[in-house]
Amino acid sequence: MDAEMDLLADDDGGEAERLEAAEAQADLLRDRLRLAVISIATSEGKKAGMEVSDPVVACIADLAYKTVEQLAKDVELFAQHAGRKSIKMEDVILTAHRNEHLMGLLRTFSQELKGKEPSSERKRKKSSKKDDNVMSSALRDD
């Protein structure tokens, strides 16, 4: 009986440790996000000729973290609804469907990303086709 109790206590301890580790990781990520927010907010304040007070930056950082958490839940559900396990750009853009202007900005940004990517991919595809042709001709010669 005592042995069983000890085992249960160990399980609880393991669970508690896991929770503590998760909390520590969350705090670390929150701090990293805060640093990024400080950088962006300060530069935006300078552009506007303003100084951003520390409580404002802290509040914006906290809001940003909550926004990311909500975004994570939303995009996962959108991908799940589409029967996918990977989150695509469209899922992220869909989270902004209530704000047409924001959706437009994200669409433009995604098109820019798509515009940057294909050139290298096309080169890769062309080179692979060449390789295939070389291989097939070599086989024919044999």
Binding site: L71, V75, S86, I87, M89, V92, L106, F109, K114
Partner: peptide, 13 residues
């Protein structure tokens, strides 16, 4: 998450 999806998320933020 797709690499491009993460970039769009960064832009949104």
């Amino acid at each position: 998450a797709n690499a491009s999806a993460l970039k769009v998320s960064c832009e949104l933020l």
